[in-house]
C-alpha cells in the first residue's frame, strides 16, 4: 500500500460521470470527427490505391483485397490514436492549462482515481470508434468472419496498452517541444507497421525492428481476427499487449506523484 498511500480514494466513478456529462452536452463534433478519419483513409487508400494494387497476401497466405488488408490495420491504428490523444495531449493540456486536475485533486479524489478515470474515458472513445469502424467494415463486406466481433475487445486492449504507456511517458514531459516527440514516434510507426503494405518488402533487419514495435502486433492481430485465420503468433500478439498494459499501468502508478503532485 505504500506506493498507493494518499493516491487512491476508490472513486473513479465520479471522474467517469464528469466525462460522460461533458460528452453528453457538447463534445459530439470532436467525437465524430475522430471516427471519420480512419473511414476516409479506408475509402481513399482502400478503393483508390486498391484499384492499382489488386490482391495481396494476408495472414496464413490467405489472399485478400487491398481494402480488406488495410481495414483491420486502420482499426488498430485508430484505437492507438484515440488512446494516445486522450492520454498524452489531453492529459498534458488539462494539467498545464485547463487546471481541471488541480480542481479534482483538491477534493477527496486521489491522483490514481483521476488517472484511471481518464484512461477509462480514453478506452470508451476507443470502444465507440472500434464499433463504428467495424460497422463500416461489415457494410463494405470486408469483415468476413464472426471472429471480427472480437476486434472490439482487442481494440480496447490495444488502446489500454497505448494509453497507459502514453500517460506514463507524459509524466516526464514539461514542454510542447517534448510533446512533439510523441508525433515523431507515432507517424513512422504508423507508416511502417505493415499497415499499408506487407512487412516483407523490407530487409530482414528492418523487419525485426518493426516487429519489436507495438503497433505491428496490433495490426497483425486485427488482420488475423478479421478473417479468422490464426497461428502461433496470435498468442504472441496478445501477450505483447497484455504485458504492455500491465507494465504501462504499473509505470503510470509509480509516476503518478510526479504527474499530478508538484
Amino acid at each position: 500500500m505504500t506506493v498507493l498511500s494518499g493516491l487512491y480514494a476508490g472513486n473513479v466513478r465520479a471522474v467517469l460521470e464528469r466525462g460522460f456529462k461533458v460528452i453528453g452536452t457538447q463534445n459530439w463534433a470532436i467525437l465524430v470527427s475522430g471516427f471519420f478519419e480512419p473511414v476516409f483513409y479506408l475509402l481513399a487508400m482502400g478503393f483508390g490505391l486498391g484499384g492499382l494494387v489488386g490482391q495481396v497476401t494476408g495472414p496464413n497466405g490467405t489472399p485478400m483485397t487491398y481494402v480488406a488488408f488495410i481495414a483491420p490495420a486502420l482499426l488498430a491504428t485508430s484505437a492507438m490514436n484515440g488512446a494516445i490523444y486522450d492520454s498524452t495531449w489531453n492529459v498534458f493540456f488539462k494539467m498545464r492549462f485547463g487546471r481541471l486536475y488541480e480542481a479534482m485533486l483538491s477534493t477527496s479524489l486521489g491522483p490514481l482515481d483521476v488517472a484511471a478515470g481518464e484512461i477509462a474515458m480514453a478506452l470508451f472513445r476507443g470502444l465507440l470508434y472500434a464499433c463504428g469502424f467495424l460497422g463500416v467494415m461489415a457494410v463494405l463486406g470486408i469483415a468476413t468472419s464472426w471472429w471480427a466481433l472480437a476486434m472490439v475487445p482487442v481494440a480496447l486492449l490495444i488502446a489500454l496498452g497505448f494509453a497507459a504507456v502514453g500517460m506514463a511517458v507524459t509524466s516526464w514531459f514539461t514542454s510542447f517541444q517534448q510533446m512533439e516527440l510523441i508525433n515523431i514516434v507515432l507517424l513512422p510507426m504508423f507508416m511502417f507497421s505493415s499497415t499499408l503494405f506487407p512487412i516483407d518488402v523490407y530487409p530482414q533487419a528492418v523487419q525485426w525492428f518493426i516487429q519489436a514495435l507495438p503497433l505491428w502486433h496490433g495490426v497483425e492481430l486485427m488482420r488475423q481476427l478479421s478473417i479468422g485465420a490464426f497461428g502461433p503468433m496470435t498468442a504472441v500478439h496478445l501477450a505483447y499487449f497484455g504485458v504492455m498494459s500491465v507494465l504501462g499501468v504499473a509505470f503510470c502508478t509509480v509516476r503518478l506523484r510526479a504527474l499530478f503532485l508538484r
Partner: peptide, 26 residues
Amino acid sequence: DPETHGPEVRANLGVIPQQDNLDTEL
C-alpha cells in the same frame, strides 16, 4: 499527514485556489 492521507484530509477541506479553476465544460 496530507501527503499520505490526501483524500481523507481533503474530505474536510474547502480549497479556494488563487486562480479560479471552475470546470468551463459544465
